[in-house]
């Protein structure tokens, strides 16, 4: 793989062969089992895949906050950190986050300061007993050298920036006093307070209604334009992906099955799983009576099939697919990667 800055990318984070497993009494859950992708500066990577395929675990691995019984068993999360030198030029250093202690001071300063995260259920992600102001100011004071007064001022500014009306009052509100959309705005304000380089959004709009979802998406795009933040956007909703992402990662059973620019993914999907996924989206102009439901079921996470995990459900299965051999990872066109035996010859 050659994803160096040389071929036109300006990478912020590069994930190489990430493996995160959970060691439970019932067995080992290989939640993430060899995933590669990269996120460009100021761009959005969409991540899709069925429930349980390891999207959230991938996100938490990037934040280096996997806790026992889980463990990062292999791989790298390389953070291309830009530092301003005294002369005004910027220097990029590379840090493999997974080599840092999860609770070390350095990791904690990255977490929340340079990388931040928002979650699926905005209200549940806010403490029921603390004001949103307390929580925003807490992050600010942790990562910036400012006093209470200034932190409060900045928190109010953040709330205004995410279009929360009457921010000076709302800063002292509790989560139960705000609507779901307001809570998610507050979460975004919280996540962006320290102007992070990367924002990981784990299904941030799933629990919101469609109108609010659209507003939140617009807001995130605006903020991205202003602050040049990279976004990793996890969702089940292909329509949202089409709207917000420049690149898309498709995951299946802890594996990265396809990584492609958004147009290539929608118009030229290569992996049989991606194709099935796109087929199961209803369209307004659709004349079919029933949706194409993917045949078969998601396999048991404790007993993955040998070979390609998708082969039992795959329509274009080859004999080699069930063999216990490494599935080839192929760049079928520039920037478009597929993990599938069909393209073993190089597309």
């Amino acid at each position: 793989m050659s994803n160096e800055n040389t071929n036109g990318h300006n990478m912020l984070v590069q994930v190489k062969n990430l493996k995160t497993h959970f060691f439970l009494t019932e067995g080992i859950v290989r939640a993430v089992d060899g995933v590669n992708f990269y996120i460009d500066r100021g761009r959005t990577l969409g991540v899709v895949g069925e429930s349980g395929c390891g999207k959230s675990v991938t996100a938490r691995s990037i934040m280096n906050m996997i806790r026992p019984p889980g463990r990062n068993v292999a791989g790298q999360v390389i953070y291309h950190r830009q530092k301003k030198e005294a002369q005004g030029s910027t220097v990029t250093e590379e840090i493999d986050l997974l080599t840092l202690e999860p609770m070390s001071a350095e990791m904690r300063s990255i977490r929340g300061g340079e990388f931040s995260m928002i979650f699926q259920e905005p209200r549940a992600s806010l403490s029921p007993l603390h004001t949103i102001g307390t929580q925003i100011m807490e992050g600010l004071k942790l990562h910036m050298d400012i006093d209470d007064e200034e932190a409060r001022q900045r928190a109010i500014e953040q709330l205004q920036r995410v279009n929360i009306p009457k921010a000076e009052e709302r800063i002292d509100a509790y989560a139960h006093q705000l609507s779901g959309g307001m809570c998610q705005r507050a979460m975004i304000a919280l996540a962006l307070a320290c102007q992070p380089a990367l924002l990981i959004a784990d299904e941030p709009t799933t629990s919101l209604d469609v109108t609010t979802e659209a507003q939140i998406l617009n807001l995130m795009r605006e903020l991205q334009d202003t602050f040049h933040t990279s976004i990793m956007y996890i969702t089940h909703n292909m329509a949202v992906i089409a709207e917000i992402a420049q690149r898309v990662l498709v995951m299946y059973m802890g594996k990265d099955v396809e990584l492609a620019p958004v147009d290539a993914l929608f118009y030229d999907p290569r992996h049989p799983y991606t194709r099935a996924l796109l087929r199961s989206i209803p369209r307004i102009d659709d004349e079919r009576e029933m949706l194409a439901v993917m045949r078969g079921n998601v396999p048991d996470p404790y007993a993955l099939p040998t070979g390609c995990p998708f082969h039992p459900r795959c329509e274009s299965r080859l004999r080699v697919c069930s063999q216990p051999v490494e599935v080839p990872y192929v760049e079928v066109s520039p920037g478009h990667f597929v993990r599938c035996h069909l393209y073993a010859g190089g597309g």
């Binding site: 929340g112 931040s116 699926q120 806010l126 403490s127 603390h130 992050g139």
Partner: peptide, 26 residues
């Protein structure tokens, strides 16, 4: 196991503080 604890950790809080300030308080 509530999301707000994870959110507190994601904010960069130390483990002890994340636990004592939020879930224990609740």
């Amino acid at each position: 196991s509530k999301p707000y604890v994870e959110a507190a950790r994601a904010r960069g809080l130390s483990e002890l503080k994340a636990v004592l300030k939020y879930p224990v308080r609740v």
